[in-house]
Design a protein around this nucleic acid. Structure first.
Lengths: 342, 342
DNA sequence: TTGTAGGCGTTATCAA
DNA sequence: TTGATAACGCCTACAA
């Protein structure tokens, strides 16, 4: 086994009879250093097996080149794509990505927020836990002038950057699409608090119905405890058991939409003829289910990339943006078999 | 906006008329500090809004409490579950997880390996890029005595920890299952080099056929350029166009199995009656496709957890394990509709 | 263009 | 049980 003594800029300075400051500058292509010196330093550094110590540099400069990412979970296709987008943008800029999962627990989120803070991340990207109502645990970053971007599940009233889709409009368009296919009794599954994205989607659903002069029927709106196949199956069964069952369903997540289709098929209810279904997210499962699930596209990777870029941009300009704008990304109705009626 | 001056152990020491070393120890519940002092210090620290600077601690102690994770991508269900397992184990131990994607590029992998090295990660977990043949870029960590765990896609000859499933046995069992269902012409899709997991699965497939005295037919084995729906569809079409088409297929990935089923259905070939299919991974899509895809379970989260725990364990004991054992996790044949014939 | 020197916030060693 | 002091490796005014 090789002996392993760390080579530092000190050692290089010694060898070349230069000052450490010169070495430090040369390695960073500082303009005040002559080309000859830069070359010499770099060559020697390589020969000696020097590797920069980011830790020391970070401590000194108070810049960590690390983006903290705090999400409910990373196994959902939408979220793993989001991370992928973040990672790609970060990698390009030489930044690291630290990932933490809140598992939708408010308590965990608070703890992990602290942890990211203690790690002096340069910026933080967060999608809120389902449980979270209060976001004061993020105030730390605000006070500290650390770029903070919320993505997808964002707080209502908090002056930070936000990268989102227009959930209201998406819900509206999804419902409108079902109406355009001739549905008149459209069911809807929902979840979470009045601060959640699901609430927005529901508002869009309701307004689309209103605009089409369709009644809002409470019995057609079911609130789920969680976004799971089981919950959606139970809800769908309940809906199909109604005296006047629905002829359409807007499921604000593909898991829910797929589950609804499976449930309908099991009961011999034909999709889309008797029940037209549209989901949300464009998860892989949506084009595996038979009939293929119509859905709303959700530009996960782009949202990740946009979030990371906002952070990087704010880190670059010495003075942070005072206006924390909201970035809206586009969604589209993806019409597939599960809702095509005419 | 609040002024933000960082509170350090210095400030606490000043306030309490104690030495910084005492503060440092007290905050860590060092046994040599009296209970009274510990309490006093902690209380004051809280009051003053102290937050530890992990950077400084890392620099001094040469321990970063960070696990580096280097994967081909994070959007595959198997890999995002793997990360989830790592993250959960790491979080429990107070470690951070830094994630990087090689996008199956050897060149990227080398660069990112360097980057993790420069960041002084405490340990590294890696699943190799599809392209990677040579793993000498990991030698750094070996020389440095940094725990290194390969997971799933592991190198053949490299004395490191490895967390894997028995791909040979899994391939063997999958094929055997099809044989038990009466299949006699079993097709197989494969990919990658002779060092890849797919090669092992293929060997299992071949040995199962041999053991059952079934011929190995070259025309039934198709090598794909990539693990995609398109590649699998093309291959399936080719297979079904044969004079004597197969009556079974072992697809070493659920994407491939699902694609095969879709292709067969499109052509009016009945699954499982005319073509029994078994996949690999137990991805979400496998139980959405109709008929449900039989598959091989792949304990992704457990593999992640096991990998992280190996690192943590080796970090704890001052002397590293010299024997880098291989950890085999169990897989099971999950029989679903796509292969059930009797 | 290069050098000097102090400090970033912590931990480790030795001494008291 | 506590304290004094020197690192850890780098960056950055300021000086030359």
């Amino acid at each position: 086994m090789k002996e392993h003594i760390e080579v530092t800029i000190y050692d290089i300075a010694d060898k070349l009879n230069l000052a450490t400051s010169t070495i430090s500058r040369a390695l960073k292509d500082h303009h005040s250093i002559s080309k000859k010196t830069i070359e010499k330093v770099k060559k020697t550094a390589k020969e000696m097996g020097y590797r920069p110590n980011n830790l020391a540099a970070s401590l000194r400069s108070k810049k960590t080149k690390t983006i903290g990412v705090l999400l409910p979970t990373i196994t959902q296709p939408f979220l793993s794509s989001l991370i992928s987008g973040i990672e790609i943008a970060a990698q390009k800029a030489g930044y690291n990505v630290v990932i933490m999962q809140s598992h939708d627990s408010y308590e965990q989120e608070v703890i992990l927020t602290q942890s990211l803070y203690n790690n002096r991340v340069s910026g933080i990207i967060c999608s809120l836990a389902m449980e979270t109502q209060n976001t004061s645990h993020f105030q730390l970053f605000m006070d500290n002038n650390t770029p903070l971007v919320f993505v997808d599940r964002v707080p209502k009233a908090f002056n930070t950057f936000r990268v989102v889709i227009d959930n209201y409009m998406a819900g509206y368009k999804a419902t409108q699409h079902l109406i355009s296919q001739g549905c008149t009794r459209i069911a809807h599954l929902t979840a979470g608090s009045e601060f959640s994205i699901y609430y927005e989607r529901k508002k869009g659903y309701i307004d689309a119905l209103k605009e089409a002069n369709l009644p809002i029927e409470e019995e057609l709106i079911i609130k789920l405890k969680a976004i799971t196949y089981e919950e959606a199956e139970n809800a769908t069964n309940k809906l199909l058991d109604l005296k006047r069952p629905p002829d359409g369903m807007f499921a604000p997540g593909d898991i829910l939409g797929v589950s609804a289709i499976q449930c309908a098929k099991k009961r011999g209810v034909k999709v889309p003829e008797e029940l037209a279904v549209i989901g949300f997210n464009n998860d892989p499962i949506s084009h595996i289910i038979d009939p293929n699930l119509s859905t709303i596209t959700h530009p996960a990777e782009k949202m990740g990339q946009a979030s990371a870029e906002i952070i990087l941009k704010n880190l670059k300009s010495s003075k942070r943006d005072e206006v924390k704008e909201i970035t809206f990304l586009n969604t589209e109705v993806l019409v597939r078999e599960s809702s095509k009626r005419n």
